[in-house]
Measured scan of single mutants.
Amino acid sequence: KKSYVLIKVKNPKTKETHTIVVPEENLEEVLKALASQPNVKVVDIERFP
């Protein structure tokens, strides 16, 4: 059974918020990819039960 993680990201320029759902096993690479985006800020990470 896969567990999923909900990542909320915000664009500081446009103030838009997006929610991305990723499998927990991919969380680290997704966070690394997001960290390299200049106008993306991770605001929240939630685990799915």
Score class of each variant (00 low, 15 high):
Tyr4Phe: 09
Leu34Pro: 00
Lys13Gly: 06
Ile45Pro: 01
Ala33Gly: 06
Ile20Leu: 10
Thr19Asn: 07
Lys8Ala: 04
Val30Lys: 02
Pro49Leu: 07
Ser3Arg: 11
Phe48Asn: 06
Pro12Met: 15
Ala35Trp: 06
Val21Phe: 10
Lys1Met: 08
Ala35Gln: 11
Tyr4Lys: 06
Lys1Tyr: 05
Lys15Met: 13
Leu27Asp: 00
Pro23Gly: 06
Ala35Pro: 01
Val42Gly: 01
Val5Glu: 01
Tyr4Gln: 04
Val30Glu: 03
Lys2Arg: 09
Glu25Tyr: 05
Ile45Thr: 03
Leu6Asn: 09
Ala33Tyr: 15
Leu27Tyr: 03
Lys1Ser: 10
Lys2Met: 08
Lys2Glu: 12
Lys32Cys: 08
Asn11Arg: 03
Val40Gln: 05
Glu28His: 10
Pro23Lys: 10
His18Asp: 04
Ser3Asp: 14
Leu34Arg: 00
Val9Leu: 12
Ile45Phe: 05
Lys13Phe: 14
His18Ala: 06
Lys1Gln: 09
Pro49Gln: 10
Ile7Ala: 00
Val9Ser: 01
Glu16Leu: 11
Ile7Phe: 01
Ala35Asp: 05
Asp44His: 15
Val9His: 02
Val40Trp: 14
Lys2Val: 10
Glu29Trp: 09
Asn11Phe: 10
Thr19Ala: 06
Tyr4Cys: 13
Gln37Lys: 10
Val30Ile: 08
Ile20Ser: 01
Thr17Met: 11
Asn39Cys: 07
Val42Ile: 12
Val40Arg: 05
Asn39Tyr: 05
Ile20Gly: 00
Thr19Arg: 07
Thr17Ile: 12
Tyr4Asp: 04
Val43Ser: 03
Thr19Asp: 04
Ala35Gly: 07
Val21Trp: 14
Asn39Gly: 10
Ser36Ala: 13
Glu29Pro: 03
Lys2Gln: 09
Tyr4Thr: 04
Lys41Thr: 13
Glu16Ile: 09
Thr19Val: 13
Thr14Asn: 05
Ala33Cys: 14
Thr19Pro: 01
Lys8Ser: 09
Lys13Tyr: 12
Ala33Leu: 14
Lys2Tyr: 03
Pro23Phe: 11
Leu31Lys: 01
Gln37Ser: 11
Pro38Ser: 11
Val42Trp: 02
Ala35Phe: 09
Lys32Tyr: 05
Ala33Val: 09
Ala35Asn: 08
Pro12Tyr: 15
Leu6Asp: 04
Val22Tyr: 01
Leu6Ile: 15
Lys10Thr: 14
Val21Lys: 09
Asn39Lys: 04
Leu34Phe: 04
Val40Lys: 04
Lys15Gln: 13
Val30Asp: 00
Leu27Trp: 03
Ala33Arg: 11
Leu6Trp: 10
Lys2Thr: 08
Val42Arg: 01
Val22Lys: 00
Lys15Asn: 13
Glu24Tyr: 10
Val22Ile: 09
Glu28Tyr: 09
Val21Arg: 08
Arg47Asp: 04
Val9Met: 06
Phe48Val: 13
Val9Ile: 10
Lys41Phe: 08
Asn26Met: 14
Thr19Trp: 14
